[in-house]
Amino acid sequence: MYPSKKIILLTLIVFFYVTLISHGKEKNNLFSKVFNESEAKCVKVYGGTLGTEHGYAAGMIISPDGHIITALGMFLSSKKLRVVLNTGDVFYAKVIRRDRALQVALLKIAFKTPNYFNLKNSVVAKPSEWALAIGNPFKVADGKEKLSLNLGVVTMITKLEVKRRAQDVIYNAEAILIDSITGNPGSQGGALVTINGNVLGMIGKVLEYKGTNTRINYAVPGKLLQDFFDGKIKKANNKLTVYIGIQLFSISGRKAPAFIDRVDIGSPAFLSGLKKDDLIVSIGDIKIATCLDYDKAIKELSKGVKVQVLIRRKDNFYKLSLVPSEIKIEEEEEDEDFD
């Protein structure tokens, strides 16, 4: 059964209408005021790239002191992580905190941001209500160019069982599913708001549904983002790390490259195929440049959840799947904040 000409025409009109809004060509319409106000509280985030990993995302300003929330990704490991405000001003950013369960990260820039989303005022999404998704798919906007707007409908609020390529991704929390195309590189970290401008949540990273191997358009609810910002989720999960069974060659200090010095026989690392003298390049979405990076990445893993490890062995690169085992207790260090 094919859609009628009326449905096709209506779809094209809505698409064209929303495109005009996002490019500022239509000033007096239903969504332009909400879009302009919300877009001013969003940012573009640029970091490093590795292989097929995209080095960019969107972000939401969530405090007057330069705090920004975005989606997890390897680009956050860049030493030159940058945030671009809607004015075109560029600032270096620091990663303050990560949460693998929600796939989110908290950044901070050394700049006052009086125009921000107050997550305490976020509202609970309701199925069938309209939602505006603001992001930067495929990095179409640069500098002070406006981000893109997608108009969609909330379909349901549910828990997800998702994966990212061959790697399972933990998401043991509620998610807002949206009938809107947001599962594209660059959209993640953007804002999801109601047509009245109330915050619903943050657009999630590109994920796939295990059942159909299709990408999911979803957002992390505002209440969970607020809990993460307040440190409540981190406090519930701290002091946990896992065992994978390798020891790094760190005689030169923890800032040395993460070369493997020893692999425990029968350990998860041994079973995955890791070997002595392998150089660890990344673990999951986290780029590993030093032994310190490795230490932090291990604390993001969870028992029994498969993760991909990218290594360099002589002149070749290999991706290996590893499943961490028993949990050990260890104090967790939080990333340093700005003064």
Rank of each mutant, 00 (worst) to 15 (best):
K146E: 08
N196K: 05
A297L: 03
V123N: 15
I69T: 15
Q226E: 14
F270H: 12
A173Y: 09
L240G: 00
L240W: 07
L50K: 00
E326Y: 10
L279N: 04
S32G: 00
A173V: 00
L147M: 11
R100W: 09
N121A: 08
D278C: 00
D285S: 06
A297H: 02
T158Q: 06
L85P: 10
V305Q: 09
I283S: 05
N29K: 05
I298Y: 14
G284Q: 08
N196W: 14
R254K: 15
G266R: 11
S77D: 13
I13N: 05
S321G: 09
F15G: 04
L151V: 11
D89W: 14
S122T: 15
I286P: 00
L107P: 07
I69V: 15
S77Q: 05
D227M: 13
V124P: 11
A105W: 03
K319I: 02
Q226A: 02
G183Q: 00
I21R: 07
A173H: 06
L274K: 01
K126T: 06
L10F: 13
N184M: 04
I178N: 01
F15V: 06
A133Y: 05
N172V: 03
Y56T: 02
G48N: 08
D278S: 01
I170A: 03
D264I: 01
D295I: 00
V90P: 15
